[in-house]
Amino acid sequence: MALSNDTQAAAAQETADGTLVGRNSTSKVGFYGTTPTVRPQVAASPNAQGIVDALKALGLITQAAS
C-alpha cells in the first residue's frame, strides 16, 4: 500500500533527536497494523481505566489471557 505524500514526509523527516512521526494533532498514526487515526483526546483528569482503554483502542497494549 502506497503512503500519502504527507505520511511519507512526516515519517522521513529526521532531526537530531530522532524521526518525526505525526506532525500535529490531526496527523494520523497507526501502530501494529491498526488503522491510522488522529490523536485521541482524553478527559482533563483521566482515570487509570480511561488511559488503559485509550491505549487498547490505539493498539498499543492488549490484555493478557487469564
Rank of each mutant, 00 (worst) to 15 (best):
V29Y: 00
A12K: 07
N47D: 15
D6A: 11
T34L: 07
A44W: 08
M1L: 12
Q8Y: 15
A54N: 09
T62C: 03
Q49E: 14
V42L: 15
L55N: 00
T15D: 10
L55D: 02
M1D: 10
Q63N: 11
A65G: 05
T34R: 06
V42F: 15
N24V: 04
A16I: 14
T35A: 07
V52N: 09
I61A: 05
A54V: 15
L3G: 06
Q41M: 10
Q63P: 00
D17C: 15
N24M: 02
T19H: 09
I61G: 05
V21S: 06
A10D: 12
T26N: 10
L60Y: 05
A44F: 11
Q13V: 07
V52T: 10
A48Y: 06
Q13D: 09
A2P: 14
G59H: 01
E14V: 13
S66N: 08
R23Y: 03
S4D: 07
R39M: 05
Q49C: 07
V21N: 03
T37I: 08
I51D: 11
N47A: 07
M1A: 09
L58Q: 02
V52A: 14
Y32G: 03
T37S: 12
D53G: 02
P46Q: 03
R39P: 02
T37W: 01
A43G: 07
A54Y: 11
S25A: 08
T15P: 04
V52Y: 08
Q13R: 11
S25D: 09
N5T: 12
G18I: 00
S25N: 13
S66T: 12
T26Q: 10
G30K: 02
A65H: 09
A43R: 15
A48H: 10
Q63C: 05
G33F: 12
S45M: 09
A65S: 13
T15A: 01
S4M: 01
Q63A: 09
L3W: 02
T34Y: 03
A65I: 06
G18A: 04
T62Y: 02
Y32C: 11
T15C: 06
F31C: 00
N24P: 08
P36R: 04
T26E: 13
R23G: 14
T19W: 13
D17S: 15
T19F: 08
D17R: 14
G50K: 08
P46I: 01
S4F: 07
E14F: 10
G30L: 07
A12F: 08
A10W: 04
G30T: 00
G22W: 01
V21D: 03
S25M: 15
S27F: 00
D6S: 14
F31G: 00
V42R: 03
L20M: 10
P40H: 10
S45A: 12
K28D: 08
T35W: 05
A12Q: 14
Q8R: 08
A57I: 04
L20G: 01
L3I: 02
I61Q: 03
A12E: 13
G59Y: 01
K28V: 06
A65W: 04
A43V: 02
G59S: 03
G33A: 02
Y32D: 08
T62P: 04
S66I: 03
